[in-house]
Design a protein around this nucleic acid. Structure first.
Lengths: 157, 157
DNA sequence: CTATTTGCAAACGATTTGCAAAACA
DNA sequence: TGTTTTGCAAATCGTTTGCAAATAG
């Protein structure tokens, strides 16, 4: 899988939470507001699709920091629900800012040739997942789901 | 996530394809019939849930082989559709024999505490996936999906 | 001032690979 | 015998971690 986040983001998904809001969330999470953290959030803020840790690291301009710091922060931010982790099966975790008030999550349709990513609408698994949990007596249920295929461009259509 | 494949397999899922059938499939795939390959298939055959490469390796009795050989073979076998790869998000790929004539695939419900794995019935995504593909002009579409939760035992119910 | 966070380098775990020897067809 | 497969060891890649120095509040 090649590099992600096409140069043509999906406008309807562009999350324009002001950086100040994100900073505020850090504060609420009792996290210190450091340059690396702000920079990471800022990078995510201006991207419409999930980024690899390494990509985030590369995108940090000025306030560059160690790659390990990015990893540590992705952990922390995921833990407090500020970012969402995705796994496209290529061995590198990808992260996306959680849409504003963490309600509906969504999934992706990934082109296996060019890595174009289509952000899908809200997840359709809600009911099914609930029934599943009940049927098997599971609690705290969640899921992971992504779609793969070949996009119109790559098919040469 | 701890060790997988509970001691209580799900009987309705126990695939009892005779080893000879699997061997035959190797032959059709123009693969040489080697001790490691037979042993790997035999291990998978007698397990009702996905196994890690390392677990497969451990389970090989007599005809032990190098771990690298297992990795190489899992690749090959996956390539020819004899086994199916699953990703439970813990960094280790898991493999399962494809159910007999590779028709309906299925997914899993994994306990995040004890790693118990419930094999779910045939996938419900068929239609949805098709519509998705059409809507976005994608071809060769596929997906990855797993459910996670806490099983009745672990919840202490 | 004190707990948190960072940089750096080393450690890790899963997986892959190069190459010569061994095994199938 | 010719090609595929294996063993072994070394290499890769994403990610994690220990520790002392830097920093936010």
């Amino acid at each position: 899988m090649k590099s992600p986040c096409p140069q043509h983001p999906h406008p309807h998904r562009l999350i324009q939470q002001p950086l100040s809001d994100l900073t505020e969330k850090l504060r609420q999470g009792e996290l210190k507001i450091t340059a690396p953290r702000q920079a990471i959030l800022d990078v995510l803020r201006r991207h419409a699709c999930p980024l690899t840790t390494k990509e985030i690291h590369r995108s940090l301009g000025k306030s560059d920091c160690d790659l390990a710091t990015v990893y540590r922060n992705m952990h922390t931010l995921e833990g407090m629900g500020l970012v969402r982790r995705h796994d496209f099966g290529d061995g590198a975790a990808r992260f996306e800012l959680s849409s504003d008030e963490g309600e509906g999550h969504h999934h992706h349709l990934v082109c296996t040739r060019c890595s174009r990513i289509v952000e899908l609408d809200d997840c359709i698994l809600g009911d099914f997942q609930e029934r599943l949990a009940q049927r098997h007596g599971f609690t705290s249920i969640s899921h992971r789901m992504e779609f793969f295929g070949i996009c119109p461009n790559c098919r040469g259509a």
